[in-house]
Design a protein around this nucleic acid. Structure first.
Length: 414
DNA sequence: TCTGGGGTCCTAGGACCC
DNA sequence: TCTGGGGTCCTAGGACCC
């Protein structure tokens, strides 16, 4: 077997590129997808400093001629899938990271399809010819290097790190190009005058562990010295499911909290049911007016996926969180997530509704009735769409910052 | 110039068990 | 009885990524 050959593919300014593809009038112009918040910006807009996550007002200040488009989320999904599928024509070992990004291990395809660099070139040509989209590729012997290479290649480029040149390639790059080094770690390293990956590699692992913790120290020590043993993994499954909503500034009263938690619980629980999964740990996230966030969680004796039960647990957790913060009476965000996922959704039929309740037989009692009601609602939605029937969605449906269709794009495969 | 939503992984302390 | 050590689970918080 020849040297490992890993590709990392990354569609450039993906949502914005799709909009410019579908509407030629937008090409060459600074555009942003979104409105209240910038969900994505074209390269022309980025040149003005416009970034995703930025408030729309701020973006307009930076770039007065910025064109806002509302977003065609079904097209993003379709084209993202199609681009990743091109990788699948070169190897079955494709690990999708997000809607617009994936790793591919082409080591086993070299003999049949040629050098990895040629495969990368053909992938870029095909995505351009068949889909009309720019895509950047990195080619290297590890995931870490391939990912950095694709960032270096952007926009619309190809970068190859040849076997044997890895350490040279890394030496003068800034530490923040390492996957997992963000602002905090960067600052902590800078205090020790560690700025480049070469300097990081020259630092004792002991020192890094003391500075950054056991796991982070070990990881950075390995990555900086080009010891990346991670394999490309197909079919990764989500380990948690969540939903959250920014509220602006809302009083912490039942009239606000209950419908919001019901809506969030419904989003989470219906996703779980659709995949025949359920989870034992429920985590509630609260952010107060000052943007300080706290979480409260509980691990249940059995996994759940019924909307009403999840909502009740979330309400209880919120009560506990508010009791611990009696001064905070204004909320800016609520979130609900479920983890410790299990395969069997039917387990919840035996879950007692209240602590101390006796065990119910499967198929009887309130839990079963609620589950059956949820299933019936799921079926109506499958035929007529999500808005046809529901709990809190109509309460919050209008005026929220981000459309449900965008939320769905960020969801991970369960 | 603190801004949206969906995620992953790590740490640290406490409870509990052997 | 006291002391020590190891392991697992749970909870809360935090850094980071797309």
């Amino acid at each position: 077997m020849s040297a490992p050959a890993i590709l990392h593919a990354d569609l450039d300014a993906f949502y914005a590129s799709v909009e410019q593809l579908l509407d030629p009038a937008l090409r060459g112009k600074p555009i942003a997808v979104g409105g209240g918040v910038v969900l994505a910006a074209s390269y022309e807009a980025k040149a003005f400093g416009v970034q995703s996550g930025m408030p729309g007002r701020r973006a307009r200040e930076l770039c007065p001629e910025l064109v806002f488009v509302s977003g065609r989320f079904d097209e993003y999904q379709r084209l993202g899938d199609a681009a990743i599928a091109v990788l699948g024509d070169f190897t079955p070992l494709v690990e999708r990271i997000s809607i617009d990004e994936a790793f591919a291990d082409v080591t086993g395809s070299v003999r049949l399809l040629g050098p990895p660099e040629e495969m990368a070139t053909r992938i870029r040509e095909r995505v351009r010819a068949e889909l009309g989209l720019p895509i950047s590729l990195g080619v290297a012997s590890t995931k870490h290097l391939a990912k950095i290479a694709s960032q270096v290649a952007k926009p619309d480029g190809l970068a190859v790190v040849r076997p044997g040149t890895e350490r040279d390639f890394l030496r003068d790059l800034p530490v923040e190009l390492i996957w997992g080094v963000g602002p905090v770690t960067k600052a902590r390293l800078a205090e020790r005058d560690i700025v480049t990956i070469g300097q990081l590699a020259a630092t004792e692992e002991r020192t890094l562990k003391r500075l950054l913790g056991e796991a982070a120290g070990e990881k950075l020590s390995a990555l900086s010295a080009n010891r990346d043993a991670r394999r490309v993994v197909t079919g990764r499954r989500a380990r948690s499911v969540g939903a959250q909503s920014a509220l602006g500034r809302k009083p912490a009263v039942a009239a606000v909290c209950r419908p919001t938690l019901l809506y969030l619980a419904d989003r989470v629980a219906s996703r779980l049911r659709a995949k025949g999964r359920a989870g034992r740990t429920v985590t509630l996230r609260v952010r107060f007016a000052d943007l300080r966030a706290v979480t409260r969680s509980i691990t249940l004796p059995a996994a759940i996926s019924a909307t009403a039960i999840l909502a009740e647990v979330a309400v209880d957790l919120l009560r506990a969180a508010l009791a611990d913060h009696p001064d905070e009476r204004t909320l800016s965000l609520l979130g609900v997530s479920v983890s410790q996922l299990e395969k069997n959704a039917a387990l919840q039929l035996e879950f007692p509704l209240r602590l101390g309740d006796e065990k119910r037989r499967p198929g009887t009692g309130k839990g079963a009735a609620r589950w059956a009601a949820d299933r019936a609602m799921d079926k109506v939605r499958a035929r007529f769409g999500r808005a046809a029937i529901g709990y809190g969605s109509t309460v919050l449906g209008e005026g929220r910052a981000v459309p449900d269709a965008f939320r769905a794009l960020a969801e991970r495969e369960l």
